[in-house]
Each structure stands twice: as structure tokens, then as C-alpha cells.
Simulated assay, not measured.
Amino acid sequence: MISVAIVDDQRDIREGLQKLLDMTDEFRCLATFEDGLTALSSLPGLRPEVVLMDIDLPGMSGIECVRALRQNLPDVHIIMLTAYSDDEHIFQALKAGAYGYLTKGVFPSKILGAIREVRTGGSPMSSHVARRVVSYFSEAYNPMLSLSAREQEVLDLLCDGQSYRDIAKQMFVSPNTVRFHLKNIYKKLQVNSRHEAVAKATRMHVA
């Protein structure tokens, strides 16, 4: 039987999750907590195998609680169960030590499946969260994917040998606007000059 603890400031969610777990023979809810500080002080003594953790908690955020719990309970498997689905919260939670990330509103069967999965070494995520993670690492591997449409247009014209003034005329913008786009391109591609930008674009076959 897999032991689970729940940390969420909404009583109806805590009670609903506890009921879901206790209806099965596979899971056991050890305790529920409405804030991170209480959870942090109590969980080391309970030693649950899995913790379902909200982010928006009073006093201490769920992400802060995850970071602290990982110090005291390095073997605990933490799954975020939250309303937040933006990149900042997703990656902060994963960096803090969460193994999974589900958004509220998922089917109960998905929550139970996620507990099973994380318990056996997996990293369960809601489908759109998983897409954000894949997209993030794709952009990290190929920085060209992070360029905006206008930045890509400037880079294409650079690779064609156009001058800054010619690029400005073709794009119907000022030379200063072209320089602004170039500054962003250099930063995203991690280069320091026009020559380096063109060379990198050519190597990656995207310009």
C-alpha cells in the first residue's frame, strides 16, 4: 500500500483527495495539511512515500516547501497538484525537487496513475505541462527556435548579405529597430557579432 500525504489550503480539495485515496486498497492517506509550514514540521515524522503538493499556500509556498522537504526527506516523491500551468511555476517546482506536475481539474484516475508512476521512478505530468517541458529543452538545444518572426526575418536578411540599412528598408523599419532586433538575436544565439550569428545560423541550417 502506497502512503500519501496531501498539502492544499482548500478544504474541499483535501477532503476530496483523501476520500479518493481511501476508497482504494492500493493507497493510504496518512495526513492532510492546509499550509506548508505545518506540513514541513510533520511530514518527516510520518515519512509518506508520496506527497501531493499545491503551490499557492499560506505562509510558505508549495515550491519553498518542496525545496525544504527534499532536504529532510530526500527519498520522498513529490507531485505538484496546482492551478498554475505557466513556465515559471513549472520549472521552479521541478528545480526545487518535485518529480511530477499535475494541474487541478485532471481526472481522478490520472492522479492515482501519477502516484503509481512516480512511485516506480516516473515523472508524471499533465499533457500540456509535458509539452512545455519538451518545448523548453528543444529551444535550449536549438536556440533558433526561440527567435521571434521578426528576429528570424532579420537573421535571414543578414545571411543574404544585406546591410543594416538595406534590412531596415526592406522591413520598413528604422535602422535603430534593426539594431534592437540584432541585440536580441545575439543574446539568444549567444554570439557577439554579425559574423558569428550568420555562421551559427548556417551551421544549424535554419536561415
Rank of each mutant, 00 (worst) to 15 (best):
M125S: 07
N192Q: 13
P143C: 07
Q170I: 03
S135V: 08
S127H: 10
S123R: 15
A130L: 15
V154G: 03
K169T: 11
S127T: 13
S135E: 14
V173T: 12
P143S: 05
L158M: 15
R165L: 12
Y141H: 04
L157I: 01
K169R: 15
V191R: 04
P124A: 14
P124Y: 11
A140G: 00
S127D: 12
M144V: 02
N192Y: 04
N192W: 01
L182A: 04
V173M: 12
H181T: 02
F137I: 10
Q190C: 06
L155I: 09
V191D: 02
L157Y: 09
V133R: 07
V154C: 08
K183H: 10
N176E: 13
Y186C: 01
Y164H: 09
S148A: 12
K187R: 15
R179E: 14
M125C: 07
C159W: 01
T120R: 14
H181I: 02
D160N: 09
G122Y: 07
L155P: 01
G161T: 11
K169Y: 07
N192T: 15
I185T: 04
G161W: 07
Q190G: 01
K188A: 06
I167S: 00
Y136N: 09
E139D: 07
N142Y: 08
T177F: 05
R119Y: 11
S163V: 04
V129G: 02
M144S: 07
T177E: 08
K183R: 11
A130W: 05
Q162G: 00
L155A: 06
L147E: 03
S138K: 14
F172M: 12
S127F: 13
Q170H: 10
V191Q: 03
F137T: 09
V134L: 15
P124M: 13
N192P: 00
Q152G: 12
H128F: 13
V129Y: 10
I185D: 01
K188D: 00
H181Y: 15
P175F: 05
Q170M: 10
T120C: 03
M144G: 13
N176H: 08
G161L: 09
D160Q: 15
P175W: 03
A149G: 02
S138R: 15
R150A: 06
S148Y: 03
M125G: 04
D156E: 14
K183C: 06
T177M: 13
V191C: 06
Q162A: 14
